[in-house]
Computed example of a mutant assay.
Amino acid sequence: MAEILDRRALNRALLARQHLLARADLSAPEVLNRLIALQAQAAPAPYFALWTRLKTFAPQDLSARLEDLYVARGTLMRGTLHVAMAADFAAICPLIQRGLDRVLTEGSVHGRALAGLEPDEIASAARDLLRQGALTATELRDALAEHWPGRDPQALAMAARVRLPMLQLPPRGLWGRSGQPTLAAMADRLATPKPGLDLPELVRRYLAAFGPATVADAQTWLGLTRLAPVFDALRPSLAVFRGEDDAELFDLPEAERPPGDAEAPVRFLGEFDNVLLGHDDRSRIMSSEHKRRLYTVNGVVRATVLVDGVTAGRWRIEDGKASSTLHVELFDKVAKPVAKALAEEGERLLAFGAKHAGGEVRIAVAEA
C-alpha cells in the first residue's frame, strides 16, 4: 500500500525543492535550470524569486544574462510570461504548444473573431514582419491589422503570440529599467534546441521542482491536458504516494522529502511566485481563504509572506522621495519571535529591493 503524505509533508517537500527551506549556494542560472522557469508577469518578480532562494544574489546576475540572451523572457507555460534558460525556453515551446492552441479554438472569443483565417498564416506574417526588426506589441498588432483590415486586431495579435514563439527583448525585464515590450521571433534569436528534452523528461523535471504531485497538478502547471499516459509510461521509474484525500502522488525516488516538522523560516515571495502557481491543489501552501486575499480579480498574485511554510500575509514596498517603507499585512496575529523574524527578514528585503537604504518595516494585521 502506498505511503500517505499529509499536507505538511507535501509542503516541506515543495519548499525544499524550491530552495525555500534554506537558501541555496548556487548561481541564478543554476537555480533556473533546477526550477525550469520563473514567473515574470511582473518585471521584478523573478528577481525577488531568486533573492529569496539564494544565499547571494545581485540583480545584475539576472539582468546580464537576459541582455546576452543566455536567459530568455517570453511566453511559456499557460501562456504567461516566464524567464528560463535560453536552451530550455527553446526546447519547451513545442512541448506546450497544444495547450496554448486552446486559446484559438472555435468556441473561444479569439477563435470566433478569427473565423475563416488560418492562425499559422497569421504567425507566418508576424515572422516576416519581425525578420525586418524587433517590434513593440502595439507595432506588431497594428501591422497585422493592416494585413487583415476589418478583423479584430487583438485577436490577430493573440494568434501570432500563440502560434509564433517570441521573446521580449531588453530593456524590458531588466532590474530598475522599463520600456515597451519589444518582441522578436524566438527562432531568430535563440539557437535551435538540442534534441533530448521531450514531454516525459519535462514531467520528470516538474516533479523534481514541485513534487510529489498529481497528474492534475502537472497539467495545471504545464497548461496541458491528457498527461495521464505520460505518467503511466513513467510509473515504473517513479515513487508513488497517496495524499490525505487519497489522490495518487508521483515523485522521483531520489528527490528530497523532509519530515513535516522540519523548520521552515519566514520568507517573502514576490508577485506570481512559482510555489503559489505550481499545482492544481494548492492546499499544501495556501488555504482557499488566503487565495481570495492574495489573488486579485484581474489575475495578479500579490507578493506574499510565508510563515511556517504557508501563506500568512502580503507585502509591498513603498518608495517615497527620501525613504522606503516595507508594509507587511498579516492575515492573523503571530507570536513575538515570528514578528521579530519577519522584521529582520524584512530589513534584508528592503536592502535588496527598496529605492532608499535604511527603510522602515511596518507589520500589521490586515482587515479581512
Results as ranks from 00 to 15, higher is better:
242 R>W: 09
126 A>W: 00
15 L>C: 01
357 A>R: 15
150 G>E: 08
147 H>M: 14
13 A>G: 01
327 H>P: 10
178 S>I: 07
102 R>C: 11
286 M>A: 03
260 G>L: 03
197 L>Y: 05
229 P>Q: 07
106 E>A: 15
29 P>H: 08
263 E>P: 08
348 R>I: 00
284 R>M: 09
348 R>V: 03
167 L>F: 05
104 L>W: 03
292 R>Y: 10
194 K>D: 13
145 A>C: 09
350 L>P: 01
71 V>Y: 07
252 L>D: 04
208 A>E: 04
224 L>M: 06
224 L>P: 04
132 Q>S: 15
254 E>L: 08
228 A>T: 08
193 P>F: 13
198 D>Y: 03
7 R>D: 14
39 Q>E: 04
44 P>Y: 09
159 A>F: 02
273 D>F: 08
165 P>Q: 07
306 L>M: 06
156 L>I: 10
272 F>T: 03
261 D>A: 12
291 K>D: 14
146 E>D: 14
138 T>Q: 14
120 D>Q: 14
84 A>C: 02
61 D>G: 03
226 R>H: 15
310 V>F: 05
162 V>P: 00
46 P>C: 05
166 M>S: 12
207 L>M: 05
210 F>C: 15
255 A>W: 03
331 F>T: 13
23 R>F: 01
257 R>Y: 00
258 P>I: 11
185 A>E: 13
207 L>H: 06
189 R>K: 15
162 V>K: 06
352 F>L: 08
120 D>F: 03
38 L>R: 05
143 A>N: 08
186 M>F: 08
258 P>G: 02
210 F>V: 10
220 T>K: 11
343 A>F: 04
22 A>S: 12
136 T>A: 12
97 Q>P: 03
37 A>V: 01
353 G>I: 09
340 K>W: 07
142 D>K: 10
63 S>C: 04
203 V>G: 00
261 D>P: 06
105 T>N: 14
296 T>L: 13
171 P>R: 03
167 L>K: 06
173 G>E: 13
120 D>P: 00
156 L>G: 07
253 P>W: 09
84 A>L: 01
267 R>G: 06
330 L>V: 07
355 K>T: 11
268 F>E: 07
73 R>H: 06
256 E>N: 12
166 M>F: 05
191 A>D: 09
215 V>A: 00
89 F>A: 09
101 D>P: 01
211 G>Y: 04
118 E>M: 12
146 E>P: 02
229 P>A: 12
297 V>K: 10
